[in-house]
């Protein structure tokens, strides 16, 4: 089978980790890593690994747009907003790892099939990729008036982009819990933990349960989706069986008498980032999963 040619724009940490993962893909062929800094460690590493690497930015890429099908945007939301219309004009489809939110929000086990032909898809946030599948798993078998997630990452794994835009993380993730996960209301909380040695990424998902939920159906739906995510993020796992707690909870979506709590841990694959940075690993692993599905759809068509 002919591999589908793609490029990474952005030669920072995310772009470099993504490069390591794409190098293993049997569906996608990484043809270029595009940066803007000639001194970039990521570009140097790309050349070492035998990939074409340029510091001439997207102009370089657009000049040979017909050699590529897919672009992975690993820059920043601001840069992606400048680049996106140019990609589209050049016939390049974009998988956006920034929080720019231009295209539909995509979480592989939930709605990937619906957006395989979209010109631009957005991967939300690391917390969104880790938690929206769980909310969806609950919402497909029960009424979820409100969902809330707490994402805790090692301080060392949160770069300056995340730190200076922490509101974007919470807002984008909250809206994904509703728009993609299927909860009526959503709230996301992000915590940075500086402990040494660094902690693995932790996510706690709370779903309010409307009356008449079926405990076994909720639990097995969660276990099922965890397996689906773990198929492309091997370090994604539940720390314990889903926990059901009964009490009176006055949530923004109404008062409920039960909630289910899923305690998740994400260990990274250790491609470029150390294993504690599950938050970064889940973004790049999801990007590969999305890219491969889009590429397979192209090949099939």
């Amino acid at each position: 089978m002919t591999k589908v040619p793609c490029a990474i724009v952005g030669s920072g940490n995310i772009g470099t980790d993504l490069m390591e993962k794409l190098a293993r893909s049997e569906i996608l062929e990484l043809r270029a890593v595009v940066g803007i800094d000639p001194e970039s460690e990521g570009l140097r590493r790309a050349r070492e690994r035998g990939f074409e690497a340029t510091h001439e930015g997207v102009d370089w890429l657009l000049a040979r747009a017909d050699e590529f099908e897919l672009v992975f945007e690993a820059t920043s939301a601001w840069v992606h907003r400048q680049n996106a219309p140019r990609y589209e004009e050049a016939g390049l489809r974009a998988i956006d790892l920034t929080p720019a939110k231009l295209g539909p929000l995509v979480v592989p086990p939930v709605n990937l099939a619906a957006h395989l032909d979209a010109p631009n898809v957005n991967l939300i946030t690391c917390g969104g990729q880790a938690t929206v599948p769980i909310v969806h798993a609950v919402a497909r078998v029960a009424d979820v008036p409100y969902a809330e997630i707490v994402s805790t990452v090692a301080s060392r794994s949160a770069g300056p982009g995340t730190r200076q835009n922490i509101d974007e993380f919470t807002k984008t993730t909250s809206s994904a819990l509703v728009e993609v996960g299927g909860a009526a209301f959503g709230k996301a909380i992000m915590i940075l933990n500086p402990a040494e040695p660094p902690i693995l990424m932790r996510n706690t998902v709370f779903c309010a349960l409307g009356d008449g939920y079926d405990r076994d159906a909720v639990a097995s739906s969660i276990l099922e989706v965890v397996d689906e995510v773990a198929a492309y993020v091997p370090g994604y796992r539940l720390k314990a069986e889903p926990v059901f707690e009964e009490d009176t909870f006055r949530t923004p979506g109404g008062t409920v008498s039960a909630r289910v709590v899923a305690l998740l841990e994400v260990e990274g694959a250790g491609d470029y980032f150390p294993p504690y940075a599950g938050n970064l690993d889940i973004m790049t692993a999801s990007a590969v999963r999305v890219g491969e599905a889009m590429a397979s759809a192209v090949v099939a068509a």
């Binding site: 402990a195 902690i199 314990a240």
Partner: peptide, 21 residues
């Protein structure tokens, strides 16, 4: 021992479930 920081109240459930187990 886990060096949790302010805001990580969710870890209380995690610890309680583990202690129970």
């Amino acid at each position: 021992r886990r060096k949790v920081v302010g805001g990580q109240e969710d870890m209380i459930i995690d610890v309680a479930v583990e202690l129970q187990r």
